Amino acid sequence: MFSQGFCVAAGNPKAIAFFGALFPQFIDATRPLLPQILVLGITFVIFDYTAVMVYATAASRITP
């Protein structure tokens, strides 16, 4: 299920446009690319996971 969900999310045109517009602003071309991409990606995953968990927790408390 994880790999299927990842493929669906990675193929989402909105996600591709979002990362294509967001990440280049924070990348320094004079420094190694991979560490920068990893830091940005991990940071995004942490913030996204936190936001989704807040929504899920709020929804579980609201619904009976």
Rank of each mutant, 00 (worst) to 15 (best):
G11K: 05
A9H: 05
F2N: 12
Y49A: 15
L40W: 00
A21D: 04
A10L: 13
G20I: 03
T63Q: 14
G20W: 06
V39Y: 04
D28P: 03
A10E: 07
A10C: 09
Q4G: 08
L33V: 12
F19R: 01
F6R: 00
A58M: 08
T50E: 03
S60P: 06
L22Q: 03
T57Y: 14
F2T: 10
V54M: 12
V8M: 00
T30Q: 11
R61F: 11
P13I: 10
Y49C: 14
A15I: 11
T50V: 13
K14S: 14
G11R: 06
L34T: 11
L38F: 03
M1Q: 06
T57K: 13
I62D: 05
F23M: 12
M1T: 09
F26Y: 14
D28E: 07
I27A: 03
I16S: 07
A17L: 13
I42F: 13
F19T: 02
Q4L: 13
F26I: 01
G41P: 02
M53Q: 07
V54I: 15
F18S: 12
L40E: 01
F26S: 01
A29D: 11
D48A: 15
P35N: 04
A56G: 12
D48N: 14
F2Q: 08
F26G: 01
Q25P: 02
A29S: 12
A56E: 14
P35W: 06
V39T: 04
I62A: 12
S60V: 10
P35R: 04
V52L: 09
V52H: 06
A21K: 02
A10V: 09
M53H: 05
V52G: 00
A59Q: 10
V8G: 00
I42C: 07
A10P: 01
D28Q: 04
T43G: 08
A15P: 03
G11I: 09
V39N: 01
P35Q: 06
I37G: 00
R61Y: 08
T43L: 03
I27T: 06
F19N: 01
A17D: 13
L34A: 13
F44A: 10
A29E: 12
L38E: 03
T63V: 15
A17P: 02
V54Y: 13
F44T: 10
L33S: 08
I16G: 02
A15G: 10
F18V: 13
A56P: 08
Q25L: 12
V8L: 02
V8A: 00
L33N: 09
R31C: 02
F26H: 07
V52S: 03
V52T: 04
F6V: 01
N12T: 07
T63R: 15
R31M: 09
G41F: 03
L40R: 01
F44I: 06
A58W: 05
A29F: 07
M1F: 11
T50Y: 12
Q36R: 01
D48W: 14
S3K: 10
Y49Q: 11
